[in-house]
């Protein structure tokens, strides 16, 4: 008898980062802090997501999005960044692709900007400090919207 048969299958949940067809969701991470970029990247790759690209300011985010499009499923967008902030970049990305899925990453105390982003078409937001559960939950929810 195969040992496998003796145990209930508890681990056959599909990783959150994979689509129905088994290919990974592709995410563009936008943040000016190397630490946050790395943190989000680690959380996402551990669940099977693919990091399609990284940008460290708003302008770079728009350029990268256009370059990757249509092979990008979601963007995580920091709000406070040099050169161009995340809200402006969100607006421009939505102009380019009205179906873009953008999740805002915000420090506490930026409620007004978060509200504005949601009105502009952001699918969801995550308030720092980031934790694994919060990040995955919000991102998965946004992909299903």
């Amino acid at each position: 008898m195969k040992t496998k048969m003796d145990f209930p299958a508890i681990n056959d949940r599909r990783p959150e980062g994979l689509k129905e067809d088994g290919t990974p969701y592709r995410v563009l991470i936008v943040d000016d802090s190397m630490f946050v970029t790395k943190q989000i990247g680690q959380i996402l790759t551990s669940e099977g997501f693919e990091i399609a690209g990284i940008a460290s300011d708003g302008q770079e985010a728009i350029d990268k999005y256009k370059e990757l499009y249509p092979n990008v499923d979601l963007v995580t967008m920091d709000i406070t960044m040099p050169k161009m902030d995340g809200v402006t970049a969100l607006e421009k990305i939505m102009e380019f692709d009205k179906n873009a899925k953008v999740v805002m990453i915000s420090a506490l105390g930026k409620q007004d900007l978060v509200k504005k982003s949601l009105l502009l078409g952001a699918k969801n937001y995550i308030v720092k400090p980031l934790d694994r559960k919060k990040v995955l939950e919000r991102i998965v929810m946004s992909l299903k919207k």
Partner: peptide
């Protein structure tokens, strides 16, 4: 650079929470 970015982020998180209270 990564360690410095991390300490910067720590300062950001603490300040953001405090400033929200002061606001």
């Amino acid at each position: 650079d990564l360690a410095k970015a991390t300490i910067t982020e720590l300062a950001n998180m603490i300040t953001a929470q405090a400033v929200t209270k002061l606001h």
